[in-house]
Amino acid sequence: MTDLDVIPTLSPEEIAEIEHEVALIPRRDSAAIDALMIVQRHRGWVSDSSLKAIAALLEMSPEELDGIATFYNLIYRQPVGEQVILFCDSVSCWLRNGDGVKEKLSELLGIDYGQTTADGRYTLIPVPCLGACDRAPVMMVGDDLHTHLDDCDLASLLTCEANHD
């Protein structure tokens, strides 16, 4: 059956992680969000074929799963750079010159929101309030939060990020 054909596109690790989530809950399809996040953690984003594979594993249709995938902000249905920069565009950061910092960052990287740098390193995405308003303006690069961006040298911050990976 075609459904079974696509499962092998998920790695054994991915499948094991997803099955671990499934085991905790009463319905297989309830693991949809976890499964999408797991696969995204491994691959950076959720491609059409990944989506189909996850759907088959969870015994749901690609449509049902895509309805979920496209609902959430943090599930990427398009390729992203090696690192995603989530730049806070909410009110407290705005009050603390968030827009100005964003402009500088865009200039530095040569990309606007929704774009990926030519070298494929970064994708820049706006994010609602990161809950660090006392340290505004802020952004996340990958898993790391960076605060007080108004007073910092963005270029060396990014170099630093690149080095500690």
Binding site: S90, V91, S92, P128, G131, A132, C133
Partner: peptide, 11 residues
């Protein structure tokens, strides 16, 4: 979930 803009207490 703490996503309300300007809210950073639960964190």
């Amino acid at each position: 979930d703490e996503m309300e803009p300007g809210t950073f207490k639960d964190r």
